[in-house]
Nucleic acid binder design. Structure first.
Lengths: 340, 340
DNA sequence: ACTGGCACTCGTTACAGTCGAGTGCCAGGG
DNA sequence: CCCTGGCACTCGACTGTAACGAGTGCCAGT
């Protein structure tokens, strides 16, 4: 693939122009708007090569060129520098996030902030329970045969579940149960709890056995199995920017995908290394999202990652800008979490 | 206004045809599809009257007629009977709602169910804190100067807040605080708590005074002031049904409105009498939603109302069907809540 | 009071023609 | 060998015209 510097410069120029104008860009307009130092004819030759290599394409004969997914990929990997944030943006981030009173608040503010700054759809995953530790388990008697189990994680997440006991349980038994589960489970990572819960049932004095057995089922469900992941979403109205040109005229598949938590989690949650991830067009695994790109990264207090956040938009998006914003917001949120 | 029975029948036929075909309906098609017993010419005369009275209109000179908001209003008020649900729908409702393990689960299942059954956007308000009572307040020590306040309401809602204490507080002080706040507040309606919290600060022994003062601030915030209302949303992808004909081609204003909790609350929350409410077109107060209709009702265990739920869609919607579904779902959810 | 008939309106569709942006190719020059 | 100016070509966008037809309003007749 003989892509010399000028051809790369042409590709970069095409991407930048197309992203900002949303219209196929021709050779003449290109030399006018960028200092390429060559004539349109030369640019045309370069374009022909770029097209042959699959980086750009023509919507129809006699129109300008448009980047392909592959072209965006090359642009993101080799042709763009991360834009520094403007002071105004930094200020917006700080202003938005101070004053958050609890985790729910942090997540909601973050997702709105992201949507506003990037003008895309924003997605924020709540701190994953799988990556959290148990801070405290509380048992609140609701009636003699019902308990409310409240689990508080070190990340600030709070989950609750109703426990239907097999028979009436006196108050001091509840106290015993509370003490036992906390002794055993407090401080443990949620992913490590199943054997501990098992041990709990076996070690417990026989008079507590039935209640503890029931409790353990709910504990396992709450700690491990159940909808352990939560997601916040904002900015869906941004999908309608750019008229109906993006997403080839139908928002339907996009909106459908955004309603599936599983999909969103796969998009922003699988961020193993702490680096920013960019999925362009059909690089993601969902047919519904073939026309969309996702920029995501992990966040967490300090170096540990407890969840993911990101934005979703048309493949024709401002990658450098969005990458910068996503990273900056993730860092701020991490700092915020570290304070608690 | 001389609207005799036949004219009303014509209006009903127009609404029904337009809702199902989504195309302006003409006099000839009307007499073919309905047994009106008169000729097209007669129907045309009736139509002219209906148009003069503002119940229908012509998109352009030589097209069929389309109901106006006023026409839908008359249809809903006087020309339609609530459709009984099909057995399949009843089964779907039951199947969907059994197995819900906690309030979050109930709300999520409900909103998805509503979206699926009506094929519209569904909105469910969490049980309003203003209409709930305190079941239990829990204080969990996080560190010597930090507490997690967990409030459990009788409706199943659980709210938590972090409390930053003015100074270190020993464990048994926390126990005292917990006992005091529960003695005073447990069982009280949330709307009645402010004076009780005030009294609490005044009556408390002086050594607990500083901690209790801080705690009371957070209590008031949690119980009364803060984002006390929550909303679940589903089915936004249904907005794209009917191509771009509904909502005159732009989903933007609708999506924007749906992102504002305040807007949604006004739409489905203000359901003072327990009857079903229908807002057609510009009957609602939001410019963004002039092209939309909302069917909503209250729900709650037994006769009390603790929250609202409903659906939002194009003015061209199946009112009788949606009204029936919304009512039925509200009733089932009420029963479910009553069991807890 | 209803109906059949008729002229009229006007949006939709089809078709032809023009325009112009943009291309590919080629021959010539550094 | 690479670049450039020139040129023929393509094809979508736009415009104007014409035919079509669904639907209407009106009127005279029963």
């Amino acid at each position: 693939m003989g892509l010399d510097d000028r051809k790369l410069a042409v590709l970069r120029a095409i991407v930048e122009d197309y992203v900002s104008t949303q219209e196929p860009v021709g050779s003449k307009a290109l030399v006018e708007r960028h200092q390429l130092g060559v004539s349109p004819a030369t640019v045309r030759n370069d374009m022909a090569v770029l097209e042959e290599e699959g980086y750009i394409r023509q919507p129809h004969t006699s129109a300008g060129r448009v980047p392909t997914d592959r072209g965006y990929r090359l642009f993101v990997d080799r042709l763009s520098r991360v834009k520094p944030l403007s002071p105004a943006e930094r200020r917006a981030i700080e202003r938005f996030l101070v004053g958050a009173v609890d985790l729910d608040d942090v997540v909601h503010r973050t997702v709105r902030l992201l949507a506003q700054l990037t003008r895309q759809v924003a997605v924020v995953q709540y701190p994953s329970l799988a990556r959290s530790s148990v801070r405290h388990l509380e048992l609140v008697p609701i009636s003699t045969t019902r308990l409310m189990l409240v689990m508080i994680a070190d990340t600030g997440r709070v989950e609750q579940r109703l426990v239907e006991l097999p028979g009436p349980v006196p108050a001091d038994t509840v106290t015993d149960l509370r003490r036992l589960v906390n002794e055993k489970l407090a401080g443990a990572r949620l992913s490590d709890t199943p054997p501990l819960v098992q041990a709990l049932v076996e070690e417990v004095p026989s008079e507590l056995r039935p209640a503890m057995t029931t409790l353990s089922t709910v504990l396992l469900e709450t700690l491990v199995e159940r909808h352990e992941e939560r997601i916040a979403l904002a900015g869906t109205a941004n999908l309608t920017r750019g008229g109906l040109l993006d997403f080839q005229g139908s928002l339907r598949p996009i909106l459908e995908a955004l309603e599936e938590e599983v999909v969103l989690l796969k998009l922003i949650g699988e961020t193993e290394p702490s680096t920013t991830r960019v999925l362009i067009g059909d690089e993601n695994e969902f047919d519904n999202l073939r026309a969309a790109s996702v920029v995501s990264t992990g966040y967490g207090p300090g170096a540990t990652i407890v969840g993911g956040l990101g934005v979703l938009g048309p493949t024709r998006m401002d990658y450098p800008g969005n990458i910068a914003t996503v990273r900056a917001v993730a860092r701020y949120v991490g700092e915020l979490l570290a304070q608690n």
